[in-house]
């Protein structure tokens, strides 16, 4: 199957596809994450059902985009604002688990990952941005980069707190922390100074490194879970090292890559 030429240049569509696929994947991810808690509170079902809803609606929005652009806009806003609300509410509810009782770093470390629901907020903002910012403007790729930067900042916090649960028992647990810290550093610069094309290329290599770290993390987490304490592999995946968490690295590398691509392509044509 060949990809039509117009889709190859349609970076708005790339973002839509990115968001839709992320919602679909989040369905599985959130199912496993809240299974740790056995979905003890009904509110834990909200992101699960919302992910399914958002993935389906976004698929419909993408399909309607060419023929009914008005519907595409409305559906995207519904999912975008809804996702933003789910994300913000999720942060508050995750913190509720013990942070407000103890207000210590330890309560952040062992509580439900407070930064994780921001994935929904990020996807929501991405969809809203995709409809509110002119796709041909220089601001568009910068917004994409900014949201990817936020994602890597979240990755830094998540990998730090998640691995702090283990006390960084293995030195390799520092790799994603170091990796995401440099990703944040690289992606911050375009917002502070005017960067050259070679710098954007360098960012591209940095993102490639992020993707590799993520894939390696996935393999390490999965391998550890095959040797977990439960006889049931699924249970080990639910209670053990979160297998999909490291995949946030390649995922965000793709998003930042889109921003970099459009930014460098735009600068080249300007």
């Amino acid at each position: 199957m060949t990809i039509p030429e117009k889709w190859k240049a349609d970076h708005v569509l790339w973002i839509e596809a990115f968001a839709a696929s992320n919602f679909a994947f989040l369905t599985l991810d959130i199912y496993m994450a809240h299974s740790v808690n056995s979905f003890r509170r009904q509110a834990e079902l909200v992101p699960l059902f919302f992910s399914i809803f958002a993935a389906v609606v976004m698929a419909a929005a993408i399909a309607a985009r060419e023929r009914r652009p008005g519907l595409w806009t409305v559906l995207g806003h519904i999912v975008g604002w809804g996702s933003l609300a789910v994300g913000v509410a999720g942060v508050v509810l995750h913190l509720e688990s013990s942070f407000f009782a103890e207000r210590t770093l330890k309560s952040l470390t062992y509580a439900a990952p407070f930064a994780a629901p921001l994935a929904y907020a990020g996807l929501g903002l991405l969809l809203i941005m995709d409809r509110m910012v002119d796709a041909q403007s220089r601001e568009w790729p910068l917004w994409v980069l900014l949201l990817a930067l936020g994602g890597f900042a979240g990755n830094l916090v998540l990998s730090l707190t998640d691995h702090a649960v283990n006390g960084f028992f293995r030195w390799a647990e520092w790799i994603p922390v170091i990796s995401s810290a440099y990703a944040v550093g690289f992606l911050t610069m375009p917002f502070l100074i005017t960067v050259s094309r070679p710098y954007l290329s360098l960012c591209g290599y940095a993102l490639l490194a992020q993707a590799l770290v993520g894939v390696a993390g996935f393999c390490i987490h999965a391998a550890a879970n095959f040797h977990g304490p439960s006889a049931k592999i699924l249970q080990n995946f639910i209670d053990g090292a979160p297998p999909f968490a490291p995949l946030l690295f390649p995922n965000l590398a793709v998003l930042a890559g889109i921003g970099l691509w459009v930014l460098s392509h735009g600068e080249a044509t300007e």
Partner: peptide, 25 residues
């Protein structure tokens, strides 16, 4: 590089302050 290194040093410092009774296991 500076921003990234600063973040990493910050992470090391925060982690280094953890009570040894938690980490020395």
């Amino acid at each position: 590089m500076v921003i990234g290194s600063a973040l990493i040093i910050g992470a090391f410092l925060v982690n280094g302050r953890r009570p040894s009774v938690e980490t020395q296991q």
